[in-house]
Each structure stands twice: as structure tokens, then as C-alpha cells.
Amino acid sequence: MSEIRKELKYMSSHEWARIEDDGTVTVGISDHAQEALGDVVYVETPEVGSTVNAGEEAGVVESVKAASDIFSPITGEVIAVNEALEDAPETVNSSPYDDGWFYKVKPADLTELDDALDADGYAAACEDE
């Protein structure tokens, strides 16, 4: 059974969002997603300074098996990307919620995340797949 963290918000397309203490939002993909994708070999993150839009494509994660778009859970300016994934994309597999994060956003409107799934809702969405 894959891990679903209580404190995170989720998209049914398997991205997670974490509201940090400073009001920024960190984005990654869930444990369930990395398990389904298998060994991750490339991650394409958005550029720092660019704007991502909620529900729109913000990057790509490629595993040996498949390519999968990353949809941003939130609108805002990208203020950091996880450059470590360039050389060690497998971090997404080993630490999807911590070291394997994708990018950080300065959110335009945090209430966008009110519509996201909580842990129970996401667990139910995974069950239905």
C-alpha cells in the first residue's frame, strides 16, 4: 500500500501540494504515482520565474515505462525548482514527498487548494482506479 500523507493536498492526477510556513507551496508527485510510473529517468520542471496555472501542464516526468504530464495544483510564480532531480531523477521514487519534490510556487490565491483532495479523498480516488 502506498503512503498518503495527511498534511498534503492532492490532485486526482496524482500531484501533491504542501503549504509551507512562509505561505509558499511545494509541489511533487505522490507515492502512488511514482510506484505506478516505475523507475523515473527524467524530470522536466518549469523554469524559475515562470508562471504555472492551476490544472495546467507544468512539466513532465518520464519513467522507463511511460511519460506523464505534471499538472500544477496551484497558480503562481515558480520560485524554486529541485535541481537535484537533474542528476538523480530516481529520488522521485525513493523520496516522493521529501527530497523528490518538483518545484515551489509563490501562490496567487491559496484558496485554489480548497478544491484539492485531502488525504482521505485521494485515497478513495486511488482505490477507484
Binding site: 516505475g38 523507475d39 529517468v41 522507463v64 515505462k65 530516481e90 521514487n93
Partner: peptide
């Protein structure tokens, strides 16, 4: 079985 952990 498609893998037992990591196919790589």
C-alpha cells in the same frame, strides 16, 4: 510480475 521493486 513487471518488477520486484526497481526494474532498472
Amino acid at each position: 510480475p513487471v518488477n520486484y521493486g526497481s526494474q532498472v
